Amino acid sequence: MLSPIMLTPLVEAMQEATLVRWHVREGSRVEQGTPLADFSAAGRNLTLSAPEPGEVVVLRIAEGQMVPVGTLLAVLDRAPATHAGPPPPAPGKSLKVRRLIARKMQESWRSVPHFFVTVAVDMTDVIGLRKSLGVTINDFILAAVVRSLREHPWVNSLWLDGEAVEQSAINLAMAVATECGLYYPVLADCGGLGLRELSRRAAELAAKAHEGRLERKETAGGTFTVSNMGMLGVESFSAIITPPQAAVLAVGTIRGEVVVDDDGEPGIAPMLRLTLSADHRILDGADAAEFLGTLKIYLEAPITLETSGDRESC
């Protein structure tokens, strides 16, 4: 059950106060009387404590901000702490996860100048190879993205302190939809990995996401994101960039379409649409088109991903 934490008068006649620092973070477990935050008011340093036990769902006020009495400071989930042993089945999507995602996406949409570029890819050869190799279509996409980022390292940049900074390590975040919400586990330092090792690591991280076992370090440091809604039947979509990354790749479903071959003959081919959402402060249209062109080449000749000389981790 959710409980709002409001700024109450901490001293007589207090009308406003400045938040000096939080003692807790979102996700922290607190008991009744646990210090939540330090405030400055009327020349005095004051501490606000938790009125009851629970979990901090969201912090609404930034440190250094002055707010009047009655302001919503945080939200507490008063659900009791779980007992020792395996966790119970996860509910409806997690309110905490939803709020975090909403806040990050709102910030991204307001502050990042997005533009979108789409390319269609013939997945005939990927479909032919995937069963014999024991990997998924998404594994091929991840491997092709890693190779393409190596060839176009500027796409693997972050917007830091007002400028784009190219990253030496490729940390590939992949969107995983679970019963509790959307998580972004990260394939860390995966630039030298081949198809099979990427497949193994991606499966491990996805399983941990669904089981609620992801560690904080396994969701941090992403430099590029892949969001695949193909399994949901979505033909194409545009994703929102996760700051400070330069871009995110949206992957749709594969569907048969009429295509014309080099001889002008019509036929049916399994086509996939990939949409790159890019930060225009870092990338321009040519950067996005060249990256997608390389990605298309790898996916239409996927044997190069399987037979590469990349190192395979044990």
Results as ranks from 00 to 15, higher is better:
Ile5Cys: 05
Leu7His: 04
Thr8Ala: 10
Val11Phe: 09
Glu12Asp: 14
Met14His: 04
Val20Leu: 12
Trp22Cys: 07
Arg25Glu: 02
Gly27Phe: 10
Val30Lys: 06
Glu31Lys: 15
Leu36Gly: 05
Leu36Phe: 04
Leu36Ile: 07
Asp38Pro: 00
Asp38Tyr: 02
Arg44Ser: 12
Ser49Ala: 13
Ser49Asn: 12
Ser49Pro: 00
Ala50Asn: 03
Pro51Lys: 10
Gly54Cys: 06
Arg60His: 11
Gly70Tyr: 06
Thr71Val: 10
Leu72Ser: 07
Ala74Met: 12
Val75Cys: 03
Leu76Tyr: 03
Leu76Met: 05
Asp77Thr: 09
Arg78Thr: 14
Ala79Cys: 01
Pro87Leu: 14
Pro88Cys: 02
Pro89Ile: 11
Pro89Thr: 11
Gly92Ile: 11
Lys93Gly: 10
Ser94His: 13
Val97Tyr: 00
Leu100Trp: 00
Ala102Leu: 11
Lys104Arg: 15
Met105Cys: 03
Trp109Lys: 15
His114Thr: 05
Phe115Cys: 09
Ala120Trp: 04
Leu133Asp: 00
Gly134Pro: 02
Asn138Ala: 08
Asn138Gly: 04
Ala143Gln: 05
Ala143Tyr: 02
Val145Arg: 06
Val145Tyr: 04
Val145Leu: 08
Ser148Leu: 11
Leu149Ile: 06
Leu149Tyr: 02
Glu151Ala: 15
His152Lys: 13
Leu158Val: 07
Leu160His: 09
Asp161Pro: 03
Gly162Met: 10
Val165Asp: 00
Gln167Ala: 08
Gln167Ser: 07
Ile170Leu: 09
Ile170Trp: 02
Ile170Gly: 03
Ala173His: 07
Ala177Cys: 02
Thr178Met: 11
Cys180Phe: 06
Tyr183Asn: 01
Ala188Glu: 04
Ala188Tyr: 01
Ala188Lys: 15
Leu195Val: 06
Leu195Glu: 01
Arg200Gly: 01
Ala202Lys: 09
Ala203Cys: 08
Leu205Met: 08
Ala207His: 09
Lys208Cys: 02
Ala209Ser: 13
Gly212Lys: 08
Arg216Glu: 04
Phe224Asp: 00
Gly230Lys: 11
Leu232Asn: 07
Glu235Lys: 14
Ser236Arg: 14
Ser238Cys: 14
Val248Cys: 04
Val248Leu: 13
Leu249Cys: 09
Ala250Thr: 04
Thr253Trp: 01
Thr253Ala: 15
Arg255His: 02
Val259Arg: 15
Val260Arg: 10
Asp263Arg: 14
Gly264Phe: 06
Pro270Leu: 12
Pro270Glu: 01
Pro270Cys: 08
Met271Tyr: 01
Asp279Ser: 12
Leu283Pro: 05
Gly285Gln: 07
Ala286His: 11
Asp287Glu: 01
Phe291Met: 09
Thr294Pro: 00
Lys296Trp: 01
Ile297Arg: 15
Glu300Gly: 06
Ala301Leu: 12
Glu306Met: 13
Gly309Thr: 07
Asp310Thr: 11
Asp310Met: 14
Arg311Met: 07
Glu312Met: 12
